[in-house]
C-alpha cells in the first residue's frame, strides 16, 4: 500500500537519550585520552578554530556530543578540522585538543568501516 502523504512529517526526538545511547566508543576515546574529561566547556577551542571560523564546525560541541554517545554526523563534522593545532594553544585545561581531534577521527572512522 502506498504511503499516504499527509503533508507533514513527524520530527525525530531531539533529546539525548542516555538510556539508549551506547557509550562504548566514547569510553574508548576517554580511556585513551582521559584529559578530555577535564574539559570545562569554555569554548576557547571553538573561538580560535580555523575551520570553525569558515564553516559551521564547532569543535567543543562535537566533542561534548561524542562524550554523551551522540556519534551521528560527528565523523563528517570532524573532517572539517584541518589539524592546525591552534585550539591546543588556548585550552585552559591543557588538553591536547589536536590529539583529541585525531583520536576522534580514528575511532569514529573505525566505527564506519
Amino acid at each position: 500500500m502506498a504511503t499516504i502523504n499527509f503533508g507533514y512529517t513527524i520530527s525525530k526526538p531531539r533529546a539525548i537519550d542516555m538510556d539508549r545511547n551506547n557509550l562504548r566508543k566514547s569510553d574508548e576515546i576517554l580511556r585513551e585520552m582521559p584529559e578530555l574529561q577535564a574539559c570545562i566547556g569554555c569554548g576557547s577551542c571553538t573561538a580560535v578554530c580555523t575551520a570553525g571560523n569558515l564553516t559551521s564546525f564547532n569543535f567543543r560541541r562535537v566533542h561534548t556530543l561524542i562524550r554523551r554517545g551522540e556519534y551521528q554526523g560527528a565523523y563528517e563534522e570532524m573532517n572539517k578540522c584541518m589539524l592546525c593545532g591552534k585550539c591546543r594553544l588556548v585550552c585552559p585545561r591543557g588538553i591536547n585538543t589536536r590529539g583529541v581531534a585525531m583520536l576522534i577521527k580514528r575511532k569514529l572512522g573505525d566505527n564506519r568501516s
Binding site: A15, M18, R61, T64, L65, E70
Partner: peptide, 14 residues
C-alpha cells in the same frame, strides 16, 4: 530531564 546546554539539546536518562 535537563537541557545539556553545551550541546543545546534536551537530555534525559534514568
Amino acid at each position: 530531564k535537563a537541557e545539556d546546554t553545551l550541546t543545546g539539546r534536551p537530555l534525559r536518562m534514568s
